[in-house]
Design a protein around this nucleic acid. Sequence first.
DNA 1: ACAGAAAATAGGACTGAGTCTCAAAAGATA
DNA 2: TATCTTTTGAGACTCAGTCCTATTTTCTGT
Lengths: 201, 201
Amino acid sequence: MSSLRERKKARTRAEIQRQALRLFAERGYEATTVEDIAGAAEVARSTFFRYFATKEDVVLFDDVDPLFEKALAAIPAGTPLVVALIKALRATFTELDEQKRADEELRMRLVRTVPEIGAASRARSAGDVEQTACLLASALGRSDEDLEIVTLAGVLIGARLVAQTLVAREPSRSYVDATLETLERLRGGIPLFDEPVVGSP
Amino acid sequence: MSSLRERKKARTRAEIQRQALRLFAERGYEATTVEDIAGAAEVARSTFFRYFATKEDVVLFDDVDPLFEKALAAIPAGTPLVVALIKALRATFTELDEQKRADEELRMRLVRTVPEIGAASRARSAGDVEQTACLLASALGRSDEDLEIVTLAGVLIGARLVAQTLVAREPSRSYVDATLETLERLRGGIPLFDEPVVGSP
DNA sequence: ACAGAAAATAGGACTGAGTCTCAAAAGATA
DNA sequence: TATCTTTTGAGACTCAGTCCTATTTTCTGT
């Protein structure tokens, strides 16, 4: 069913992305203009924007959420939620690595390295509370209006932010591991919540 | 110690932000250019960028945080952290005058409403983890490298996001109340963490 | 009170991202 | 082949953000 037209489109898209990643790696993200990328891919500048809405988008093909959703739904009923989340997270990322390893390396490095891309990535992946609440609601068979569901959604997004912070502090670290560790720590309850403050001297 | 120079700077900054928020409310975020804002604040375009690094920053800039920080430091030593946070939050907002409270409301509405601002706000959340961790570290007399501190910081940011969601659902609601309620709920531990998932049918 | 130092501002030039339009090219259809 | 549709190229345009310089405003020492 793939007409010549569709094959060409796919090839153009891939080529733009390939050249973009190559140039980002060579000269850096800021120092590479969209015009450079278009030129390297032998395409007009306006064509670039027909394939990718923004310059960041070349780096961010973020299909993680739907994959995670699928993985979570596949966890057998009766599993405690935290465990289910942990398993689904592992499954998602191992599946992701198998498919596109070479480019994925570079992509991750750019996300960690270039502040602008990192910010864009966080803005997308952090998602909003409502979205996560929906996910949890369907996982637990509850309503997404449920205040407990919403609260839990917030905590989980917080956990992701913590993981990102940990990776930022120690870039060699795996994001998945950092997330898993944070979830594990939260299983023991929210730390320090009843610790006394020291006050001002 | 506040020289004329510093007072003027503070006034200029406040005026730019006030005009910006007013214009955003009137014509929308996209439809308002930095030049419009500068003009309304009777200031040069380049001056705008001396006060705010980006157009988004004019919305994200928050002069409530330092107030909260002060309020937290004023809580007597020995108070459990959650209680201290709750008290400090209350104190901060009762202290705000009518004008600032209204500005704060509008700011929050824009963060929820304009996708671009929401994204920028989320993108900064990770940085906020570090910042919040510092705050908590000094409140508890610990190091901000402490993993428990960082984790707690993430949870609190999550709580803030939850509060925003609740206000979005029920706009008549006060943001402070929503935050306080969420903190109270979290005192009882993270809800639903060990609830069994239903799996896919 | 006044001169000179330090800081803030206005104003404008410039780069690059993102949008839009239109005519030409390539592909599909019959 | 002729014709209709989709994709592309090219260029004009807006606006965010950077940078530089001359000018004004505030501060400081005398």
